Simulated assay, not measured.
Amino acid sequence: MARTTPHQVQDQPLYRKVATQLLGELRDGTVPPGERLPSERRLAERYGVSRETVRQALEVLRRGGMVATDRRGSHAALPGEPVRAPSALAFPVGAAPAVAADRATVTWETPPPEHAEALGLAPHRPTLVHRYESAGSGGRRTAVTSFSAVALAEVEELARYRERADGTASAQLWRAYDWMRRAGLTLHHRDSITPLADAPAVRVTRRVHDQYARPLEITDLVLDDRQGALVYEFTLPADGSTAAPRSPRDPAVR
């Protein structure tokens, strides 16, 4: 007859060990409140277990109210202040706080030629394209953003949108710059604002690249109010970086 040792009695099932490790990350802020967890595949690779074990671990945390799951994945549900992107870096550039009239969607398509050139994409190569529309007291705003292959390869949260980039579901990517920084990218922005000759509106073109001068995204925003043209630049270090941010240049109206 087999004997059960004290060690065997105390030994937890593998999925409970994974749940304990993941709970530790939720509690120490590695995965902040409201932040989406890595995919089951990534978690399985991280802990060296099967995806089924990860599913069982997540179910334990869900039953305890520490993780919540919707159709876009699982996210931390422990009490605390959700991480918010810096207000100065609203995505897309010029975006107003979300209101009922806002519309934001993503598609997987060939970007405008000038976007493809800025991002170093081959002609007719598709990528993730984000469209934003807002109509409020400040006027109408429409923006088109194209992401580079680098951004999609290094920022997991953006890459996930490819599977549902059908142009129908809402896709508010206001955390985009925060996701990039969490992926270790230092963001350098260059915003050019010019009046449109044939309409009482201005166009804002934002180009973003990282610390290796690799393009990440380009946005064209049109606002239906006129103002002088200006160009300004600034750098926002990646999370955990000890480098001081580059001082913004004084905007110069041309």
Rank of each mutant, 00 (worst) to 15 (best):
M1K: 02
M1D: 06
R3K: 09
T4F: 08
T4Q: 02
P6Y: 12
Q10R: 14
D11E: 13
Y15F: 11
R16K: 05
R16A: 04
K17A: 11
K17V: 15
T20F: 13
T20Y: 08
Q21A: 15
G24R: 03
E25N: 01
L26I: 05
L26M: 09
L26R: 01
R27Q: 11
G34S: 07
R36A: 12
L37Q: 07
A44G: 00
E45M: 10
E45I: 11
R46K: 14
R51D: 14
R51Q: 15
V54K: 07
R55H: 06
Q56D: 15
A57C: 03
E59M: 13
A68L: 14
A68S: 09
H75L: 04
A76T: 05
A77P: 05
P79M: 04
P82C: 12
V83W: 07
L89A: 04
A90E: 10
P92T: 04
G94I: 10
G94V: 10
A95G: 03
A95W: 12
V99N: 06
V99T: 15
A101L: 06
D102R: 15
R103I: 06
V106Y: 06
E109R: 03
A116P: 04
E117D: 14
R125F: 12
T127S: 13
L128T: 02
R131H: 05
Y132W: 13
E133G: 02
S134R: 01
S137Q: 14
A143P: 03
V144P: 00
V144L: 13
A149G: 08
A149Y: 02
A149F: 01
A151T: 06
V155H: 06
V155F: 02
E157K: 06
A159R: 06
R160H: 15
E163T: 15
A165I: 00
A165M: 01
D166H: 04
G167T: 12
S170P: 14
W174R: 03
R175I: 02
Y177A: 08
D178R: 13
R181T: 02
R181M: 05
H188T: 11
D191P: 00
S192K: 04
A197L: 07
A197Q: 08
P200E: 09
A201Y: 00
V204W: 00
V208N: 00
R214L: 07
R214A: 10
P215M: 00
I218G: 01
Q227M: 10
Q227H: 06
F234N: 08
L236M: 11
A238R: 03
D239W: 07
T242H: 09
S247N: 01
P248M: 05
P251L: 03
A252W: 06
R254M: 09
